[in-house]
Simulated assay, not measured.
Amino acid sequence: MATTDEVLHAIKKATFPADKDALIASALESGAGDDVVRALRSIPPVDYADKDEVARSVPTAEPVDAHTAAQQARGQADSRIAADLREVAPDPLEEAQRQS
């Protein structure tokens, strides 16, 4: 798995805002390795305003604190459906309390 530094180095010539395809193309042009390209292919297909947004979205080899993991999960859950319109799974604790 690629590191954040490797990913950011591979897209250093990208012009922002950039979409997923532009970031992958930039990485390929810079000669990025398979791990970096694979990491970029796993990000959501949205426009990224800057390298910081890419860094928050791309899965990397570094240990992740809970805050960063949550940001990445939210970024990868981009379904283009407004949050208040998404179907939410029932809370298992509430379900258990109702059944008891």
Rank of each mutant, 00 (worst) to 15 (best):
L8N: 03
T15S: 12
S42L: 12
T68Q: 15
H9T: 12
A18T: 08
Q97W: 10
F16R: 04
G75R: 15
Y48C: 04
R38L: 10
R80C: 09
L8S: 02
D65S: 12
A55G: 04
I24M: 08
A55I: 07
D47V: 01
P17H: 04
D84I: 05
D50V: 02
P59D: 09
A55P: 03
L40R: 05
R74Q: 13
Q99M: 06
A77K: 06
K51H: 00
Q76M: 14
Y48A: 08
D52A: 13
A83S: 12
A61P: 00
T3Y: 05
A70F: 11
A32Q: 06
P17W: 08
V46M: 09
D52G: 13
A2T: 10
Q71F: 05
A25C: 02
L28S: 08
D21L: 09
H9V: 05
Q71P: 01
V58R: 08
A39Y: 03
D78Q: 06
A25M: 04
S100Q: 09
Q71Y: 02
A96K: 11
A89R: 13
D65W: 09
E29C: 05
S57H: 10
V58E: 12
V37K: 02
A2C: 09
L85W: 07
D91C: 15
A49F: 06
A27D: 05
L93W: 08
A55R: 13
A2K: 09
A18C: 01
K20Y: 04
E95G: 02
P92A: 12
R56I: 01
A61I: 07
G75M: 14
T15M: 05
E94N: 09
A66K: 14
Y48V: 05
S30F: 06
Q71L: 15
E95Q: 11
A32E: 07
V36Q: 09
A69L: 15
D21N: 10
K13A: 11
A70L: 14
A61S: 14
A82F: 12
D47H: 06
E29N: 13
L85F: 11
V54C: 08
S57Q: 09
G75C: 04
